[in-house]
Design a protein around this nucleic acid. Structure first.
Lengths: 266, 266
DNA sequence: ATCCAGAATTGATCTTTGTCAATGACAACA
DNA sequence: TGTTGTCATTGACAAAGATCAATTCTGGAT
């Protein structure tokens, strides 16, 4: 593992309050690895051997059943995933694959369980993290049950705009088919819905989305912190998609990885 | 609070491992109260002042948005709810109402937070509980996204049958409209789906459901522990509906409250 | 510059699901 | 023993969403 990676991990909400000695012990048992695009990191149903931390790149969490697939979340640096499975020493509920070349740190889940038993600060951090993750999925489930797909799309756009700093124009950081799957609809349906929403205060051009009439869009789906997450940039994650980039879409140019700040779970 | 209620609470997975002194302190700040049917115990958006523990009766957790409502879970004795909100000192994501005359214990969330900071065993229990709750909602969300409503109904029936001990015949412990809402569909749609499934290995008579051809029903929706929860009776909860009663439906007779054993979160 | 594969879009069509309205069943209650 | 309110069921219809097929677009590689 590279030396310059540790401080980043150390500053994660999950690890920032623990004793240095314990942190070092955790990292001693851990190892880092870089994966190319499209690698299946974990497979749902497998035993939870490692907590995964994304240092660079991005990872899609998805679930499968009977031949169908759906995206549950996209994890970006610096974020961790499948904490709950590690803790309960239970099979993963989701699979994960790299969406691009990515670097991860893998922490043995047995070490994890051992450490929070003797480091109260780490235990509290874990509790806070898990409570946030729970609330995040609960909100997601609420959205799926209480909103139509049109409303989910509108709310999603408003949330992305908000996370980008309430700018009028932003770039979807993820392929539309992933967004569609995350929102529980087909790509075709998302495409049509976006088109339809162009009469409701937005303009879409490829990855570039412009909100021309925020008030109008909010009328389609009034934002609700109890579904969309708390206000302010840097909010969200857990079971969500990454924050959008503020920059304009620039064809022919490597897009800079969206800010990379650490979103907080609530 | 009655003396005979404490041992029950003490034996909850959440409290069973903590120091007696800390448990007593928690309970000292707590108070018990009995509510009639249909009382709104908490309202989504309100600050999370108390952890709620159901001693008797049953409580529906539900969510609202823009005039719509959906059932998220039904909590039965002895179970707790809104732990996550208490921990994060954040607004409730869901509302709760009594489905019948119910007795609850309310534990101030500030006490809760204070105690798990100094009782490592309690911290571990909290972690385990939260991780289980997270997995429970995550499974629910998977079901909503990966299954059609027909498949959700079939899977629900299989799960209920399994929880009742793999019996062929059991009683739905909850109103069908609640089940429908929980499964993310309308009562009409549930009604029609049940009717349709009568050609796929079940027979329905009011609250009484009989599985005439388990194999056939499983073909409609192959059960998956990564969605339906771990095998064996006593599994589930978190974000689920209560286990069904094994007994036959007896018209004109007060139905005995379904077993009341404590389901474990996974 | 050209080619290629995957993504996105669009149209046509079908299935699923929701909505509205009416009716029936049932239990609590006067 | 009616009465009444709620839940469940059913039918008819409308809306939403999925599926299939055909292009079109785009970005990357040759």
């Amino acid at each position: 593992m590279r030396a310059n990676e540790l401080p980043e991990v150390r500053h994660l909400p999950l690890f920032r309050d623990m004793l240095q000695a314990n942190f070092e012990q955790l990292m001693q048992g851990a190892y880092a690895q870089t994966f190319p695009t499209g690698v299946e990191l974990i497979r749902q149903g497998d035993p939870a051997d490692f907590l995964h931390i994304v240092i660079a790149g991005s990872v899609e969490m998805y679930a499968e059943w009977g031949g169908r697939t759906c995206t549950m979340a996209v994890v970006q640096p610096v974020g961790s995933f499948i904490l709950a499975a590690c803790i309960r020493d239970a099979p993963y509920l989701m699979s994960a694959r790299t969406l691009e070349k990515s670097r991860l740190i893998l922490v043995p889940s047995s070490d994890l369980r051992a450490v929070f038993r003797r480091d109260p600060e780490f235990a509290v951090s874990t509790i806070t993290e898990l409570a946030g993750a729970f609330r995040s999925v609960a909100r997601h489930a609420k959205g799926l049950k209480l909103r139509t797909s049109r409303e989910r799309v509108a709310a999603y756009l408003l949330k992305q705009s908000r996370q980008a700093g309430n700018v009028e124009s932003f770039v979807l950081g993820v392929e539309k088919r992933l967004i569609a799957s995350y929102l529980g609809m087909t790509p075709e349906n998302l495409s049509r819905t976006l088109r339809q929403l162009e009469g409701e205060g937005i303009r879409v051009n490829g990855q570039q989305v412009t909100i021309t009439d925020r008030h109008r869009l909010m009328a389609v789906a009034p934002p609700d912190p109890l579904i969309d997450g708390p206000d302010g940039p840097g909010a969200g994650v857990g079971m969500s998609l990454p924050p959008p980039s503020t920059a304009s879409a620039k064809p022919r140019e490597k897009v800079v990885s969206p800010t990379g700040f650490e979103p907080v779970t609530h």
